[in-house]
């Protein structure tokens, strides 16, 4: 693969006796959008969380731009490394005591050491990118779920990450709010951002993904371009999974 941003080799993870990831390997190229699908419990969220070490992998290696993502070194090194990955949570997890603007500015200020005014200027630009400029001074509680998620995306973008990771970013949203978030993600992908997206939004996968990965029982069961994987899935698991989804 040309210019892989992320290289994952034999990643394994278990919680107690429960093997959640079994020797998962994959590369993500610069600018690529990879969508991971699969039933709940297939390990897709854990995989994403291992990438930025929200979960500690049991075994295997992860490289970012060729450099191993490790859990040794100072807390600062680990934190710096982590901030190379933008992470968007299912439940947004905005900081309720900050305005939308400060939610985005806090990272650049405290982690990157920018002055408060520089951090806020950057935050304003990132909010504009997700079409949230009009709501910059509002607290999360005053925003709809879709708006909160867009602020959360801006918060991740403000760290200028190499990769954006999305963990079911629209699953907690009311149906009418899903599209505004997907639109922002699509704009990001079109703008050349490298993205790994765990989602059940098949239309998004079909339109935006360069590659779709189907996970089952902690393994990558099948992968390929969306037009092929969705039209003629080879593995029985993927066939079943996609049939269920389309018959919903």
């Amino acid at each position: 693969m040309v210019n892989p941003v992320i290289q994952v080799q034999d990643l394994s993870k278990s919680f107690g006796d429960n093997s959640v990831l079994r020797r998962v390997s994959m590369d993500v190229a610069t600018g690529e959008t990879v969508v991971i699908i699969g039933a709940s419990g297939s390990g897709k969220t854990t995989f994403l969380r291992c990438l930025n070490r929200l979960e500690e992998p049991g075994a295997g290696t992860i490289r970012l731009d060729g450099n191993p993502v490790v859990n040794s070194g100072s807390e600062k090194q680990i934190a710096d490394q982590r901030s190379q990955f933008g992470f968007v949570f299912q439940r947004f997890n905005l900081f309720p005591h900050f305005s939308a603007l400060d939610n985005v500015a806090i990272g650049p200020e405290k982690v990157r050491g920018m002055s408060k005014s520089d951090a806020r200027a950057l935050a304003a630009a990132e909010l504009k990118r997700v079409h949230m400029s009009d709501h910059a001074m509002k607290r999360p509680v005053q925003l709809s779920g879709g708006q909160q998620q867009r602020v959360a995306i801006a918060r991740a973008l403000a760290m200028k990450p190499r990769v954006m990771l999305f963990d079911e970013p629209t699953s907690a949203l009311d149906p009418e709010l899903v599209q505004e978030v997907l639109d922002v993600m699509k704009e990001l992908a079109n703008g050349g951002m490298t993205m790994v997206v765990v989602t059940h939004e098949m239309n998004f996968a079909r339109e935006v993904a360069d590659r779709v990965i189907y996970m089952e029982n902690g393994r990558i069961a099948e992968e390929g371009p969306p037009e092929i994987l969705f039209r003629e899935p080879k593995s029985p698991g993927a066939q079943r999974f996609l049939r269920h989804l389309t018959h919903e």
Partner: peptide, 25 residues
């Protein structure tokens, strides 16, 4: 827990998370 995870994800350190994110809430 999501609060400290979100702060961790943007690269904040444990001490910063305690002081700026968790304590005020």
């Amino acid at each position: 827990r999501g609060q400290s995870e979100a702060a961790t994800a943007i690269g904040m350190r444990h001490r910063q998370i305690l002081i700026y994110i968790l304590l005020p809430q």
